[in-house]
């Protein structure tokens, strides 16, 4: 009895989470302009999505921005974490606490304060993309720092010492010994940075060039507009992103299970 109740509860929650996305996915394959209306099958939304320059530009721009700022954030955050770990205690604490500020701060405040500093005080034009990229790097780098730091702490420091004793320069020891050991942290930091940048609305809103849109800022404007062809093309976009996310997550799980199976076989 209790078991059934649990299952029913989980099922209801899954429905709450997934029904809206799935309903939208179904309707994206019809010519209906609002859900509830029954219309015939149509691929028009997908054609519009991939052939309207405004839409394709916006998607490409969002991806470039995410990959670009995540790359900068990963380099800065990783070097920052290594540097902070090997600095004296005072400096290390200072970097770690400053790193915490954007993490706990509201995105609205982060975006607004960067906009004021760069645009209002220093007169940097938003059209240069500098405020936007700076904002996204500020959003992402602290999370890279946080995912790299534990890996550095877990690292076996004697290997580094051994490399130095065997004649490696500190720089070679860093690139050959330290970096390879923290790669998992760097990769998950980068993935997190891409996700954060893709999902951001507020920082982009306060710092983006007038004619540039990310998916978030574009969709928010489109829901308020009355252009139904764009509105329903976004249903198609939602469905495409949903499919991509499902594929990535399934792929990661399959890989993790295989690796688990592999390592288990090795220990035997």
């Amino acid at each position: 009895m209790a078991k059934i109740a649990k299952r029913v509860f989980l099922l209801i929650m899954l429905m709450f989470i997934y029904l809206p996305i799935l309903i939208l996915a179904v309707y994206s394959f019809t010519s209906a302009t609002q859900i509830g209306a029954i219309r015939g099958f149509s691929m028009q939304n997908y054609i519009t999505l991939f052939t309207t320059p405004e839409l394709t530009d916006m998607i490409r721009g969002t991806l470039f921005l995410a990959l670009g700022s995540a790359t900068i954030a990963t380099i800065l955050g990783t070097l920052g974490a290594i540097g902070a770990f090997y600095s004296d205690r005072k400096m290390s604490t200072l970097i770690s606490s400053l790193n915490q500020v954007p993490v706990v701060n509201a995105d609205v405040v982060t975006g607004f304060s960067i906009c004021i500093l760069l645009v209002v005080v220093l007169h940097v034009s938003k059209e240069t993309f500098i405020p936007l990229v700076a904002g996204h790097v500020t959003l992402c780098a602290p999370f890279v720092f946080l995912s790299v730091m534990p890996k550095i702490k877990q690292m076996d420091s004697s290997i580094y010492e051994a490399a130095l004793d065997l004649g490696a320069t500190p720089f070679t020891a860093l690139t050959e010994i330290v970096i390879p050991q923290i790669v998992p942290g760097i990769i998950s930091g980068f993935a997190l940075a891409v996700t954060l940048s893709l999902d951001d609305y507020f920082i982009a809103m306060y710092t983006k060039p007038a004619m540039f849109d990310t998916i978030s800022t574009y969709v928010v404007n489109a829901t308020k507009g009355s252009q139904t062809t764009i509105k329903t093309a976004l249903w198609a976009l939602s469905t495409v992103i949903f499919a991509v996310v499902v594929l990535i997550v399934v792929g990661m799980n399959v890989r993790a299970m295989r690796q688990e199976g592999g390592s288990r076989a090795e220990t035997k």
């Binding site: 809206p20 996305i21 309903i23 939208l24 996700t195 893709l198 999902d199 609305y201 998916i215 978030s216 969709v219 928010v220 829901t223 976004l234 249903w235 976009l237 939602s238 992103i241 949903f242 996310v245 990535i248 997550v249």
Partner: peptide, 10 residues
């Protein structure tokens, strides 16, 4: 991992 604006649209 799905953009929040698209989920809220749904």
């Amino acid at each position: 991992w799905i953009n929040f604006s698209l989920r809220i649209t749904a």
